[in-house]
């Protein structure tokens, strides 16, 4: 067991845990930040995607000792304020993307990071960028449409 200082959604948090505890479980079980989901635990599905210094990262595979001073952003931390959504979330709402929604925190985190690197993507680029995030409900088409819409909202 050791103490770790983490910067999560702009807030400094201290946790006491094993060095190999993955960020996913620190968020969910130590801090009660449960918007990030557990799907496979083996980096195959993307349900656990968060941002580490702005880069999409599979938190189920990120042991706490590797985090250091990196800043962490989760689905709870992307909206500009309590009652305003991130443009990607707005697009998700407009396209009514989620079915069960279990994969969508991960989908949205991947999309937010992707659009930062590629603000005006083509449809093929969107599909390719989102292809690592699995959706058991098969909402892929709406996801792609929403990413396109979000790109318009962000570059308008």
């Amino acid at each position: 067991m050791g103490k770790y200082n983490l910067n999560i959604n702009g807030k400094q948090q201290t946790v006491d845990c094993d060095a190999d505890m993955p960020l996913l479980w620190i968020l969910r079980e130590k801090l009660g930040i449960t918007g990030t989901k557990f799907g496979c635990g083996i980096a195959m599905c993307g349900a656990c995607t968060v941002h580490l210094n702005g880069q999409p990262t599979r938190s189920c595979q990120l042991p706490v000792f590797q985090i250091g001073k990196s800043t962490i952003t989760t689905i709870e931390g992307i909206a500009p304020s309590e009652n305003k959504l991130h443009p990607v979330q707005e697009a998700w709402q407009a396209h009514q993307v989620p079915q069960c929604g279990y994969c969508q925190s991960g989908q949205i985190m991947t999309a937010v990071a992707f659009l930062k690197n590629n603000p005006k993507p083509k449809m093929e680029e969107i599909s390719a960028a989102m292809s690592g995030n699995l959706c058991r409900c098969g909402t892929y088409d709406r996801i792609n449409q929403a990413v396109k819409h979000a790109s318009d909202l962000l570059t308008k």
Partner: peptide
């Protein structure tokens, strides 16, 4: 219920 499902 979409809002809840896109905000975690």
């Amino acid at each position: 219920d979409v809002l809840e499902r896109i905000t975690g």
